[in-house]
Every structure is written in structure tokens, then in C-alpha cells.
Simulated scan of single mutants.
Amino acid sequence: MSPSSLRSEEFMAYAMDAWADTVYRIALSHTRSVPDAEDITQDVFVRLLKSTLAFEDDDHLKAWLISATLNCCREMHRTTQRRKTSPVAELPDTRAAPPADEGLFSKVGAVWNAFGSLPPNMRSAMHLRYVEGYSAEEIADMARCRPSTVRSWLFRARKKIKASLEGKDAL
């Protein structure tokens, strides 16, 4: 690809300023790993740089970035599942909730752990609905599924989180 076919520096700076945090948050909610989320964020913006798609408006660009992020998360999940590696050393579980005596922080940690235990499709739907503010129809367009499927994911995710927080097994 020649340098002339790449997007302008101004466009890339605008896109990164406007939506890098959103891309990073989605990637982090999927991977629960800061380095992986950073890698995915970088990959998404490299894809944007190389893309020749003409965007109609900011909403179209944001939807494209979110779809690209979800695709990168799926790709990373697929490649890590196929790759057979053994850990070099046991690492501490950084996802554990803070000690119970820390009040609000322990509740936030419990919610974060419950959210992290959801399957990727439910985690994406929950993030896009409740953090980014998208409707079920908009999420369905991004996830390439039916709105009723998204509503089912949201319902089941809320049920699983509630059961997890109450200390019960869900579904």
C-alpha cells in the first residue's frame, strides 16, 4: 500500500482523540488484559489507517471502529485458543476482587468479576448497551445478528450477573 493511499494525519488524530478510549474500553472488557487491549486498540487504528472506506459521518466511523474492535477481539480469542502454550511461571490472579473490608471497592470488584465471567457476546452487548448507550438494534447491526438475539444476550447477562453477585450459579 502506497503512502498516498493512507488516511491523512489530521483524520487519524481526530479519530484517535475522539474514539481511542471507547475502542480501548471495549477491548479491555473483552480481554481483561491491559497489554492485549492496547494491542487491539493499535490494530484497530492501523486497520483504519489502511482502510479505503469513505465514512458518511462520525456515527458511521464510530460504528466501524466498534465493529473492528469486536472483530479483533474475536480474532485474538480464536488465535489464543488454537495456540498451545504453557505458562512460564504462575502469575497472581489480578482479576480477584479487593478485600471485603474495602466497602465500595469490593462491590465494584465483584461486579467487574461477574461481568468478566460472561461469554464474549454477552459482555459486548452489555458494554455497548450500558456504557456506550447503543440500542439493541444498533448493537445487532454491529454484531451482525438479530435484535432479538441481542435482547436475549442482555437478559441472560443481567441474570448471570445478578446470580453471581448473590452467590448462585446462573443458567
Rank of each mutant, 00 (worst) to 15 (best):
A13F: 12
F45A: 05
F11W: 12
E38T: 10
V88G: 03
L6T: 13
E90N: 09
P120I: 03
V108W: 07
K50P: 03
I40K: 02
T69Q: 03
S33W: 11
N121V: 07
M76C: 02
T80N: 10
A20T: 03
M122W: 11
P87T: 07
W112C: 15
S33Y: 07
P98G: 00
P35D: 08
S8Q: 04
A63T: 11
R47N: 08
P120D: 08
S33I: 06
V111G: 01
L104N: 04
R7E: 06
A13H: 11
L104D: 09
V46M: 10
S106Y: 11
A27R: 06
L6V: 08
A125M: 03
T69I: 03
L70I: 11
D101H: 14
L65I: 10
E56C: 02
L91D: 00
A114K: 02
L61I: 09
P120R: 06
S124Q: 09
C72Q: 06
L118Q: 10
E75N: 14
N113H: 06
C72G: 01
P87M: 04
D57W: 14
R7G: 08
S33K: 11
S29I: 09
S124M: 08
L65H: 08
L91T: 04
V108H: 05
R78Q: 15
A20M: 10
A15V: 04
R32K: 14
A63R: 15
P120G: 06
S106H: 15
L48K: 00
P35H: 08
S5F: 04
A20S: 09
A114E: 01
A100R: 05
L6Q: 14
A125S: 15
V46R: 09
A114F: 04
E56S: 02
D101Q: 12
H77I: 10
P120M: 11
R78N: 13
K84R: 10
A54R: 14
T52I: 06
A18G: 04
T85L: 15
E75Q: 03
T85Y: 10
I40Q: 01
M16Q: 12
I26E: 10
Y14H: 13
R32S: 12
K107G: 02
R123P: 02
A37W: 01
L6K: 15
R32A: 12
R95T: 09
I66S: 04
P119C: 12
L61S: 06
A27G: 07
M76V: 00
A114R: 02
G103R: 07
G116I: 00
A125I: 08
A96W: 02
E56W: 02
L118F: 06
K84G: 05
T31P: 07
D43W: 02
N71D: 09
A110R: 14
S5C: 01
N113A: 15
R95M: 00
W64M: 12
A125W: 01
H60R: 13
D21F: 04
T31K: 13
F105A: 14
P99I: 10
S86C: 05
E38D: 07
T94I: 13
D36E: 14
S124Y: 15
T80M: 07
T52H: 13
R123L: 14
D58M: 07
S117D: 13
V44C: 03
T79Y: 13
E9W: 08
D59S: 14
P87H: 03
S117V: 01
V34I: 14
G103C: 05
H60I: 00
A96K: 10
S86N: 12
A110W: 09
